[in-house]
Amino acid sequence: MAKKKLNPKQEKYQQKVKKYESKPALFKNAFQAFVSGGLVCLIGQGFIDFYAAVMNLPKKEASNPAVATMILIGALLTAFGVFDKLAAYAGAGLSVPVTGFANSVVSAGLEFKEEGLVQGVGAKIFSLAGPVITFGVVTAFFVGLIHALIR
């Protein structure tokens, strides 16, 4: 990114901007994120136990259908236009769990349907979730490589 140096006048103005820029309600936002994020994870744990019991799976494997269920819930909330309203309250509490991943994929798919199924939905569906996958895979690649080399 081009980082152009600011001249003194711009520098001075940026200080003023900081002064007037309204600040987020740190405590309130953090509390809301804690409670809603905790709740989402609690529900996720509920599904893990549910699938472990119903499908007779070991805990570790039961998290697969649980994740899929949470994604389905996130997808439905997005499709019905509710997710963005809940997230305005919950913030990271809905974005950081897998529900947020679902929302970023579904909202992009939904938004670009008018541009066509191939060039719209197909191409844009990862426009928000793409970075997470790209960086996750690149990190995992090098982590795996280092692991394999030192073993």
């Binding site: 987020p24 740190l26 936002n29 953090a30 509390f31 809301q32 994120a33 804690f34 409670v35 809603s36 994020g37 905790g38 709740l39 989402v40 994870c41 609690l42 996720g44 744990q45 913030g91 990271a92 509490g93 974005s95 950081v96 769990p97």
Partner: peptide, 18 residues
Amino acid sequence: AFWVGGLICMLSQLLFDT
């Protein structure tokens, strides 16, 4: 599950807000 998940989300929120 509640407090660990909540904590991760809360720290992310603080990062977002600050």
